[in-house]
Amino acid sequence: MIRHGAIVLVAGLVITAPVPAVAGTRGWAKASGIGRTLLVGTALGVPAVQGDWRGDLEAGTSLLAAGGTTYVLKELIHERRPDGSDNRSFPSGHTSVSFAAAATLEKRYGWKAGLPALAVASFVGLARVQADKHYVHDVLAGAAIGSMSGLLLTSRKDDRVRLTPWSTHGGGGIDVAFRF
């Protein structure tokens, strides 16, 4: 089922990629919205289709954490957008939610789901800059917020084997835990 999610993400990217080239900044803005919606739908839809309700709950929690953090920062930091439309540029909400969805898919289901999702999330960030809605640092901050929420609030679907790196002043290593 993960393969289908990856196919949907790649198909969405292929469909939305030509739009900005034709329509200018409005096209980039529309394409970023489509990419974000596609990622959120995939992050919530893939677990639901599989009956993975814990994965669905974790995806929802990750998306809410990224969106909430972004909202609070926008209220505290009043940075004017490049197009001058308002003072809610920092950080990029489209990007934070997109990266939260992508990081959740990667952490829960592995790189086969995560790699295409991260490609679409990166496209969303690029499109926000091209749409003249955000500066590069807005997008980078959004990507960091989303990635952290996805990685910290999501668990692996199959956690029978867990590798945990550790370090101390005198060395480090990897703990291996097996669940039977």
Rank of each mutant, 00 (worst) to 15 (best):
S96G: 02
A131P: 04
V22Y: 12
A113E: 04
G110L: 09
G146V: 04
A48D: 01
A43C: 11
A43F: 13
F90R: 10
G5L: 12
A59Y: 05
P47Y: 04
L76K: 06
T164C: 07
A43M: 10
I2M: 13
D138T: 00
A119K: 10
K157A: 09
K157P: 00
G114N: 00
G125D: 01
Y135M: 08
V22F: 13
R3L: 14
L152W: 13
A66E: 09
R80T: 04
S32M: 11
A48Q: 03
G35Y: 02
L151E: 12
A103Y: 09
L9A: 07
T154G: 05
R36E: 08
L73Q: 03
A6W: 03
G27W: 11
T104V: 07
V49L: 14
G125Q: 05
W111H: 14
T168E: 15
D56Q: 15
A59Q: 00
L73P: 00
G84I: 04
W111I: 15
G172D: 05
T69F: 09
T154P: 01
R54M: 10
G55W: 13
G114T: 01
V120P: 00
T25P: 05
V8A: 10
E75I: 14
V136R: 14
L153N: 02
G27D: 01
L153V: 01
G60P: 01
K133I: 02
D138V: 00
I34S: 08
S149F: 07
